[in-house]
């Protein structure tokens, strides 16, 4: 219990340091956000007024104190560019990214572990080597390139090789703009639009996980208890599911936490290419417009996701591994 409390406290402190770093980064940068915000004909006095209005002319310490004070009240400020509360901007975007991320993460794990364990079981064979090359190649591909390759396959390729209509998957947006379907039909439309983004994120994630799951599995396969199980006549599925996988869970859970930043980063590009209105698109738009409050808010959300994932992995470890129960 004491352990849990201290982990929570250190996570909270870490989060605060992250927020402070992003605050300082945004303010240390050259350039003035008001130059992008004022209309073309505005005078220098207008610009100065806007700067005062946004609180950008106060000393840094005052800005920091104001920003921290508002943060404690749950107020993330107002988007410079969209003139809407940052909370609203993020609240619209988070569910989109969370949905996309959760589905991709689940598939990533199932596929990644399955491939990695299969390779561990057949180490050194031709199929193991072929899969190593395949996973390394996919892991080496930028997410936006994979996304574009999929789009090319389902547009250029579909026309060229004559794909059936059911396989012509939509490549842009979350729903068909011409459709006014509701209920199940709308859900089906959403699912069709999700196929390509989910495949992209899953492929990249699973390739990375498989590489490490193979190492974890291979280490376990050569251990004494596996030899014992084999000597007792346990079947192959029983050895791998009951003995190897059971012992692989703790490192795999750590891996799950470590996979989160990559998934978040990948989702920025995937949302960008497939035009999904999630956190990634919001971040890219805010970066382009120097929208400090939104950049800070988005970075905070990303950092929170990473810190929470690490915390969850830390707290889950003792449940999965009795040796870690103090």
């Amino acid at each position: 219990m004491r352990n849990v409390v201290s982990r929570l406290a250190s996570s909270a402190i870490l989060f605060w340091i992250v927020l402070t770093i992003t605050f300082l980064l945004a303010r240390a940068a050259p350039g003035d956000p008001t130059t992008l915000l004022v209309p073309p004909g505005a005078s220098a006095a207008d610009q100065a007024r806007l700067r005062t209005e946004l609180g950008l002319d106060a000393p840094l310490a005052v800005q920091y104190a104001r920003w921290a004070g508002r943060l404690f009240k749950g107020d993330l400020g107002e988007s410079f560019a969209r003139r809407a509360p940052v909370r609203t901007v993020l609240a619209e975007a988070i569910p989109v990214s969370a949905g996309l991320g959760a589905v991709s993460l689940a598939l990533t794990f199932i596929l990644g572990i399955a491939v990695g364990m299969y390779q561990a079981a057949r180490r050194g064979t031709l199929s193991d080597r072929a899969l190593t090359i395949a996973t390394t190649t996919v892991y080496a591909a930028p997410s936006f390139w994979l996304a574009l390759a999929l789009i090319a396959t389902f547009t250029y390729g579909a026309a060229r090789w004559g794909f059936p209509a059911s396989l012509r998957l939509p490549a842009f947006g979350m729903r068909d703009p011409a459709s006014d379907a509701t209920g199940l039909a709308a859900l089906g439309d959403l699912a069709r639009h999700a196929v390509l983004p989910v495949i992209t994120l899953t492929a990249i994630g699973a390739a990375g996980i498989a590489r490490y799951a193979r190492t974890i599995g291979a280490d376990l396969v050569s251990q004494d208890f596996v030899r014992t199980a084999r000597a007792k006549g346990a079947t192959r599925p029983r050895i791998y599911l009951r003995h190897v996988l059971a012992n692989a869970w703790p490192p795999l859970v750590v891996l799950l936490a470590l996979a989160i930043p990559g998934l978040l980063a990948g989702s920025v590009f995937v949302e960008g290419v497939f035009a999904w209105p999630g956190m990634g698109r919001v971040t890219l738009a805010a970066v382009a417009a120097r929208d400090y409050p939104v950049i800070l808010g988005a970075t905070a959300v990303y950092a929170a996701a990473v810190i929470l994932a690490n915390l969850a992995a830390d707290l889950a470890l003792p449940m999965l591994d009795p040796r870690r129960r103090a």
Binding site: L14, I21, R290
Partner: peptide, 24 residues
Amino acid sequence: MGAADALLAIPRLILLLVCAALWR
């Protein structure tokens, strides 16, 4: 190490995006 941990908690791409966008 505190600074390292804090920087590691932000996905590197996001950190990179923020920095690259703020400087020329």
